[in-house]
Design a protein around this nucleic acid. Structure first.
Lengths: 231, 231
DNA sequence: TTTGCCACGTGAAACATATCACAAGCACTT
DNA sequence: AAGTGCTTGTGATATGTTTCACGTGGCAAA
């Protein structure tokens, strides 16, 4: 079916696929049936060539002279990104940020659900947030193993993050999304992505300060986020 | 005051500077006075050469044969990143995520403070979160202009994000940190960074799915997508 | 002063990613 | 059946980033 050994895609290309996927979902809601790389690039802030190249890492999904069929392209994106496998996720740390993550409807909408939550604070243990019962840390290992959870969100204070990470890895978690402002150490076979709010704000601060200092309008900047470290 | 930029640094280099900065702060708390690029790289998950190159974009802050003095290097990072200028920030959208952002102590710790918050929901307007009074949207423009706020956090639903962004830009905001899962359009002189949780999770999902496919060595599997072996 | 070692700073090489530009293929018309 | 117009998919090219490797300056001890 597909010519297998396509080249490996850059990490940023994968992230752009997510955007394409969402945009396709939106187009489909609007009843749009076909889309060109040009059109898709306008909607996602990319370029037409970039869109085509990104897709080409995984196959050829369009028809020359016509464009891409929204429905099938979306299906391919879903397949590639593993959306729809419905990976269950665990959350550690049910503070302000953790609660916000539990309430974030973007996850279920993309097929990801937080099915377990853990916290070390006895006052939070036992509470129910969005249908999820907060469990104590000593149930983390057994619960995650029993439910075969492979992805976890770390939303604990920086000081606790490395320890929690180790517990999760010991329990069998393969993918971590870290929100603590610290650089976590993980073994090579564990995937790690980090969302670091301070870094983002400081990056903007840098741009702002630079533009003020230089005073010359040097560069338009459109940055995506983030930083990922494969083990 | 400003040590002129020597060359333009890659965006990722700036983000790494933030990590160096935090690591330096931590070292200083521990009483460490000097640090080598080697040591710093271990603590941040970078490489020694990378650390030196990143710093070299902005100057030469170390002493050959010795390393860097923690205190002065930290000061330089602070200067470069614009930390300590204490940029005031505005928040739009005081839902779950917005509330978490108001409570996030990483911002004030790095010298950034959310000093104004806005929401379109009348039930939220007037409430006080972390000493900040939530104001209605129609006060956004005047408030931001009066306080000369240049940075704003957008934590509203995707559908409202572009409109809010426009209001902020009209009010004079130069830097935006967007949390809505949508690709915002901004003029070239406005800086934009985005934190997109779905994209991060889907990236991990992609890695996970890929590693599973690779592991299943026999490889027929459902999809027949190209895969490459992780290093 | 000289010796020895150390770690920075940096040109150059290697690598990664993005952009260009066009042949190939499809739909539609004549 | 051939022509026209459009858009993909992809070599080739350009640009950007990371890594390598080593000259340079600096410290300490003899």
């Amino acid at each position: 079916m597909s010519p297998l050994p396509r080249g490996k895609a850059p990490q940023m290309a994968i992230r752009r696929l997510s955007m394409y996927y969402r945009t396709l979902a939106s187009l489909r809601e609007q009843g749009v049936e076909n889309v060109s790389s040009e059109h898709l690039s306008e909607l996602t802030g990319s370029t037409a060539a970039q869109v085509r190249r990104d897709l080409a890492y995984f196959g050829s999904f369009g028809r020359r002279g016509v464009g891409y069929e929204v429905r099938t392209l979306q299906a391919h994106m879903r397949e590639i990104l593993g959306i729809g496998q419905g990976w269950p996720m665990a959350l550690v740390g049910v503070g302000n940020l953790g609660s916000a993550l539990l309430a974030y409807d973007g996850f279920p909408r993309q097929g990801f659900r937080i099915v377990e939550a853990f916290d070390s604070d006895p006052r939070r243990v036992g509470t129910v947030v969005r249908d999820v019962v907060v469990k104590p840390m000593d149930q983390l290992r057994d619960t995650i193993q029993a439910r075969k959870i492979a992805m976890a969100l770390v939303a604990v204070p920086a000081k606790a993050a490395q320890g929690v990470t180790q517990q999760l890895i010991d329990a069998g978690v393969r993918c971590l999304l870290n929100f603590a402002p610290i650089s976590l150490k993980v073994p090579p076979d564990v995937y790690l992505a980090s969302v670091d709010l301070s870094i983002e704000v400081e990056y903007l601060s840098y741009l702002l300060r630079e533009s003020v200092a230089v005073n010359a309008d040097s560069g338009p900047e459109l940055t995506g986020l983030g930083n990922t470290v494969p083990g």
